[in-house]
């Protein structure tokens, strides 16, 4: 399959008064044409920062330390100013986490969607307006012509996210990065937005990176899943593999914390005990070691390499080392119980 995005060894840090926050460490992943890739991980695992790094959208104190991100063969991390802006919004666009704060409160929604077209196309004003209204209709905003002149605060969260999606898709980009587009919405709206995204993706044929901290959300959107923890890739495999043969204790923890349908959602507030590592001083060994039920002495000392658990399925865990007494068997036997 032809790859449109190929990221290698991306490391990004924030420089704060308290020191260097290593938000992303040696991250590698790729997205094929038309593919939907899921990126999953707890809050703070570096999902957003990874993709912000590629688009040069880091806040001032953030810096990409190393790595390459080839987009259609050219390195995004080497692009500056005008070249990079030409990619943003036209070739790669983003839908952000929080629709409440991602729209400018002092501009009408129509203008904000139209802006992408103004920057990237040479269309005339009426053409731009037409296309914008069409797009608003496509994301199922009722009375799109009238709503063109509405202010963001007059829209509900779900509606705003539709506007964001319209904004991201209006230039028909090759790659859409949807950063937890439904996290801030309530459950019924979530389902609608997911459905909309799936339909639009099929209709426009764009590749999608779908970021979420919820595996179940990703499951019916994506073909492949990357699991991130502590700024690193912990496991990568096809969606089926992840669900049927999870090969990393962290992934298993995430799976175990998916609420069953009968269960009430708030029962599982803290599914994996403990909290993510402090990225100011990441532990020298496996970042997951303090919370893992299978921690071995080596896990505290050395960072595990990304090992192949099966063809096309990699896992960053010492249990896959050829020296480990059990070498991967634990996973097959289902011996890793995250809870308890």
């Amino acid at each position: 399959m032809e790859k449109i995005l190929e990221v290698k060894n991306l490391s990004t840090s924030f420089f704060t008064s308290q020191g260097e926050v290593q938000a992303v460490r040696e991250l590698s992943l790729s997205v094929a044409k038309g593919e939907a890739l899921g990126v999953v991980g707890e809050s703070g695992s570096g999902k957003t920062v990874s993709f912000m790094s590629m688009l040069g959208l880091l806040p001032n104190n953030g810096r990409v330390k190393s790595g390459t991100a080839l987009f259609n063969g050219s390195d995004l991390l080497g692009l500056r100013g005008r070249e990079l802006r030409a990619v943003r919004g036209r070739d790669i666009s983003m839908v952000f986490q929080d629709p409440m704060s991602s729209l400018n409160p002092l501009k009408t929604v129509g203008k904000q969607v139209a802006e992408a077209l103004e920057v990237h196309t040479k269309l005339s004003r009426p053409e731009i307006k037409n296309k914008t209204v069409e797009m608003l209709k496509l994301v199922k905003i009722p009375e799109a012509e009238k709503r063109y002149n509405s202010w963001p605060h007059e829209f509900s969260g779900g509606m705003r996210q539709r506007v964001m999606i319209a904004m991201a898709l209006v230039c028909e980009p090759q790659l859409v990065i949807a950063d937890e587009p439904t996290t801030a919405l309530d459950v019924t709206i979530q389902a609608q937005i997911l459905k909309l995204l799936r339909e639009l993706k099929d209709e426009l044929g764009s590749a999608v990176v779908f970021i979420s901290h919820d595996l179940s959300v990703i499951a019916n959107m994506c073909q492949r899943i990357v699991v991130m923890y502590g700024g690193m890739v912990m496991e990568e495999a096809s969606t089926e593999e992840i669900f049927s043969y999870p090969s990393h204790p962290y992934t298993m923890g995430l799976l175990a914390s998916i609420p069953d349908l009968e269960q009430k959602k708030d029962v599982l507030l803290d599914p994996i005990p403990g909290s993510p590592p402090d990225m100011l001083a990441p532990p020298p060994g496996c970042p997951f070691a303090p919370r893992c039920t299978r921690t071995m002495t080596i896990c505290l000392k050395e960072l595990p390499p990304l090992a192949e658990a099966a063809p096309g399925h990699s896992s960053r865990c010492w249990l896959w080392s050829e020296f480990a007494p059990t070498k991967g068997n634990v996973f097959k036997e289902g011996a890793v119980h995250v809870k308890g």
């Binding site: 802006r85 030409a86 991602s102 729209l103 400018n104 904000q112 992408a116 904004m167």
Partner: peptide
Amino acid sequence: DYIRTARSKGL
């Protein structure tokens, strides 16, 4: 966030 949105549009 909305400034990031504006930047992500390529402004």
